[in-house]
Design a binder for these strands. Structure first.
Length: 502
RNA sequence: CGGGCUGUAGCGCAGCCUGGUUAGCGCGUUUGACUGGGGGUCAAAAGGUCGGAGGUUCGAAUCCUCUCAGCCCGACCA
């Protein structure tokens, strides 16, 4: 027996959180870096996870009346110039296509040729190209509302990238809707942030706070930005989804007008909303531990993996047959409306290694079945959320598997909620605020969510910059109590969540 | 775009300062044996234009010049 490390992932979360995060991604086979700067390769296990997220979200979008469509990857540069704030927000991180052909270089290799008359931007988001299209589609109030979503990739030329959290290219969905009235557009914005919160909490088992962004943190060009904010295990905040009320800013810039019932020509009201593969990063940092990825059963690509145990070929056949029948019985069961997802791992790999393979990949339940179990009619069950395995009867396991998954799903949510509660504080003075966010050293896990009254964000800027803290959001619920700003002492109507953020 | 660092086997590194036989090590990989409710043991093997170009030298991974790429620290961000 060689001395195995105590944890499958090194370093541990408390030793070096950012490095732990990278190692989990690697150990769980979710993704790897690519030859292309700032871009990642999403591997099958990671992509299956994303597909499960997509499917659930897509069903929710359809259920709220949206349809999918697809718009071009390229946006003429002039389109981006139309909305002033929008340009300013995205111009610095755009990939620009200036040529359409390659030709041999006299010194060898290739060089771009055929300069484009107007450069094309690789979409950093699609408000402008979609808006230009909507301008043609919208003529009458009878054309409204337009409720469309697109699944796509976008490119933002970020300086510093981290897998899933911030990559130069990422996958996402962006909803773009057009409405006849402000009220209707605002209702849409709220509906979609609620959909995201529902998904985060009930599928990802990740508690989130719904709130609105302050002007400085708003989406460029938006009148109001709603977001869901989650706390990661290092106590930092992660913005997990946004929904924007764009008012008439984009419709004015792009001439999205319709003729109302009274015959009057009016500018339409638009919204946009999106979540991205960043959610995979959020999932990793919400639940995973020092042995690797931990997946909520509802999104796990495989919910139960069966590990057949045998010594020789004759046993192998018997065990495999037995295990196939367990799989079939389990697949006939369902969990929250979907058939159970079961895998058998029959690879020719040593038992211990095989077990750890699935631990690191976050499979919720491991089922170990060998000749002795067949005799006794039992199975050996390992839960990803508990260190110890235990035996139980085959029939009991099968009958209770959905309940077990449900218990695990809720357990993950409660554990994450508890972490958030333990690290959220009501803070009323600037010195307490400083103490809360000051770290004795960089790697120390510290801080959390500070819940504070504030009057205006501008006067807080030096303090926040100093502490590297940002205003995450002004929570929408339970936020009517007036008070005084923790820093300036001015009268304040609302509290905000302050935190260090990704 | 400013400051610091690194490019040597699939991955992680040593060697460089003080040039000198076939460039090492750990992990991983392959094969065999032992083992068998466990990421084990032993043995063998495969795998490298030392980031690229030029220069100094009898001789360069090692010294010099240029170049490319990546990482970290600052301003921006789903």
């Amino acid at each position: 027996m060689a001395k195995a490390p105590k944890t499958a992932i090194q370093p541990t979360r408390s030793e070096d959180y950012p490095e732990w995060y990278q190692q989990v991604i690697r150990a769980a086979d979710l993704a790897e870096s690519s030859p292309v700067r700032g871009c990642m390769v999403i591997k099958p296990w990671g992509y299956r996870l994303w597909e499960n997220m997509q499917r659930a979200l897509d069903d929710m979008f359809k259920a709220t009346g949206h349809q999918n469509a697809y718009f071009p990857l390229f946006i003429p540069m002039s389109f981006l110039e139309k909305e002033a704030e929008h340009v300013e927000g995205f111009a610095k991180e755009c990939a620009v296509v200036t040529h359409h052909r390659l030709e041999p270089n006299p010194d060898g290799g290739l060089r771009p040729a055929g300069a484009l008359e107007e450069p094309l931007i690789v979409r950093p988001t699609s408000e402008t190209i979609i808006g230009a299209t909507y301008a043609k589609w919208v003529q009458s109030h009878r054309d409204l509302p337009i409720l469309i979503n697109q699944w796509a990739n976008v490119v933002r030329w970020e300086m510093r990238t981290r897998m899933f959290l911030r990559t130069a290219e990422f996958l996402w969905q962006e909803g773009h809707t057009v409405h006849a009235t402000s009220e209707e557009a605002i209702a849409e914005t709220q509906q979609m942030i609620n959909v995201y919160a529902d998904f985060a909490q009930n599928w990802m088992a990740m508690p989130v706070i719904i709130g609105s962004k302050t002007p400085a943190e708003r989406f460029p060009g938006a009148v109001e930005t709603l977001s869901i904010e989650a706390m990661m295990q290092d106590r930092k905040a992660l913005q997990a989804g946004t929904s924007h009320f764009l008012g008439q800013n984009f419709s004015k810039a792009q001439e999205i007008m319709f003729q109302a019932e009274n015959g009057e020509r009016q500018y339409a009201w638009t919204t946009s909303w999106g979540v991205s593969t960043r959610l995979v990063g959020a999932l990793i940092m919400s639940h995973s531990d020092d042995d690797g990825l931990v997946l909520p059963p509802r999104l796990a690509p495989d919910q139960i993996v069966i590990l057949p145990i045998y010594r020789d070929d004759s046993q192998r056949l018997e065990v495999l047959q037995h295990v196939e029948s367990i799989k079939a019985e389990l697949e006939a069961m369902s969990f929250l409306g979907q058939p159970l997802r079961i895998a058998i791992d029959d690879r020719d790999v040593r038992g211990g290694e095989k077990k750890w393979h699935h631990v690191k990949r976050g499979v919720p339940i491991r089922l170990e079945v060998g000749p002795k179990d067949i005799e006794k009619g039992s199975v050996f069950v390992g839960r990803r959320d508990q260190p110890k395995s235990f035996g139980m009867s085959r029939s009991e396991f099968i009958a209770t598997a959905p309940a077990l998954l449900d218990e695990m799903q809720k357990g993950l949510f409660n554990r994450a909620l508890q972490l958030r509660n333990e690290n959220t504080q009501e803070i009323t003075t600037e010195s307490d605020f400083r103490d809360f966010f000051a770290a004795s050293d960089e790697k120390e896990l510290h801080g959390g969510f500070a819940h504070c009254h504030f009057a205006d964000e501008q006067s807080l800027e030096p303090l926040l910059k100093d502490l590297k803290v940002t205003i995450r959001c002004v929570p929408s619920e339970d936020n009517d109590e007036a008070g005084t700003c923790f820093s300036t002492g001015k009268a304040a109507q609302k509290r905000a969540i302050f935190a260090k953020a990704y």
